[in-house]
Amino acid sequence: MRGALVLMLPLVLAGCDSPLSTLTPAGPAARDIAGLWWVMLGGAAVLTLLVLVLLAMAFGPPRQVRARVWTHWLGLGLSFPVLGAMLAAGLWVGERVLPRDDGALQIKVHAVQWFWEFTAPSPDGPVTTRDRLILPAGEPVDLIITSSDVIHSFWVPQLGGKMDAIPGRENRLRLQADAPGRLAGQCAEFCGVGHAVMRFEVEVVEAGDWEEALRDAANDGDAEDD
């Protein structure tokens, strides 16, 4: 069955437009994690197969077996290296995608039942957009995520993992988009009746065009207000 999935996936991914897919990464963090997934999937398939083969082989005449081989060599000897490798890989990827104090651009993300407010700094003062996040391509961005009502979770699957928006605290998430384009984001933590529609769009523009795009967005916002 695992094999079938592996065969199936490319078809799915090629055939469909998947704006929220973690498997079509559009940034380094999501790409690292997707890589982690594919390796883990392969390992899981091998281990599942191993268990099934051992089970199938059990159906037969009784064998002389030594308990220690099963409980110690297989039970401990197999699991520790596998789990140790996973822990190391997880830590390595985790460290790579963590925010650093390197003066990266900071955008404030404020979650409200049931919409998103993004506030970016610009020469003309902070610009706030609603349900629309504008990012410069190829540059790391730190998102400062807050909420003032209930818990939400900020998630742009094609860029990286999610981060909760929790009343009373500021969470920081670093994302980076590879190239200009349109991506999608959504709330991932159940937050009431509007949870399913609490979505936003992510507009990635060339780094040089970012301030202008922000200015345009601000003007759009003014127009909407009128």
Binding site: V51, L54, L55, M57, A58, F59, G60, P61, P62, R63, Q64, V65, A67, V69, W70, T71, L74, G75, L76, L78, S79, F80, L83, M86, L87, G90, L91
Partner: peptide, 26 residues
């Protein structure tokens, strides 16, 4: 994360003890 991975070990031991039991019997 380490603790969560570690908790798999006793479960793995049991799974292999069960399969080993099946090997040793009919």
């Amino acid at each position: 994360s380490a603790a969560s991975l570690l908790v798999a070990v006793p479960t793995v031991v049991q799974v292999f003890a069960w399969i080993g039991t099946m090997w040793q019997g009919r």
